[in-house]
Design a binder for these strands. Sequence first.
DNA 1: CGGGATCCGTCTTGATACTG
DNA 2: CAGTATCAAGACGGATCCCG
Lengths: 123, 123
Amino acid sequence: MRSPCPISNTLDIIGDKWTLLVMRDILMFEKSLYSEFLSSWENISTNILAERLKRLEVAGLISKESYQTNPVRYHYSATPAGKTLKPIIRAMGKWGLENLSGTRKPTKHDLESLGARNRRSSL
Amino acid sequence: MRSPCPISNTLDIIGDKWTLLVMRDILMFEKSLYSEFLSSWENISTNILAERLKRLEVAGLISKESYQTNPVRYHYSATPAGKTLKPIIRAMGKWGLENLSGTRKPTKHDLESLGARNRRSSL
DNA sequence: CGGGATCCGTCTTGATACTG
DNA sequence: CAGTATCAAGACGGATCCCG
């Protein structure tokens, strides 16, 4: 049976780190490709990413649309419901900035250098 | 190395369901006793609860204070830093109410009946 | 008896290798 | 490059024990 508490129910859907990080990438960093999520600083692994994308889609928070065939490639984006998560994510960002040392807003430069960091030199 | 992203760092501390549920109990439902956390609707188990309380204390978000000796009993409460989590939790509650069917604000009556539900009749 | 600690079986998570 | 298979590690639920 389901809890009557809205907080608890919300946590059942987005109460895990990786799920929220994917939504952060989509909502705050405007990422939309599988490869872009993979290249995020936190290094999500491929199976986790695929599974979270599926769950988020089932939950109606994101949708995927193919932008190319052969091979098929997808573009993920937030649904209207997904976009309403922004206040939660923003609140977390604000909290981190105010309460955790060593954090700051990522700069444009950060976002660009991320790609470089993830291209392992020896591969 | 630590992520430069405040959202990610926040998630490393409170990015899990049980941690947030404990903070919900403290911040929104004014619970303060181990037994009160245990009796929450979601039925957290003792090992998980004890571990989360410890982590939250180490993180400086809650503090415990003994209110009785022999045997010693504790009273948990949010530190000033812990209290600043309220906007995040409120945002989650709001999101749940607006996006999840079957949720509602718990009433005083709900909170009281919870205790009854947890006193297993056959024990 | 209340506040845990500990052990155990199970299920989930996650890193990595692998495939189309 | 997007996603699946594999398998080890960890999280969890539940029971039990422990200590004051």
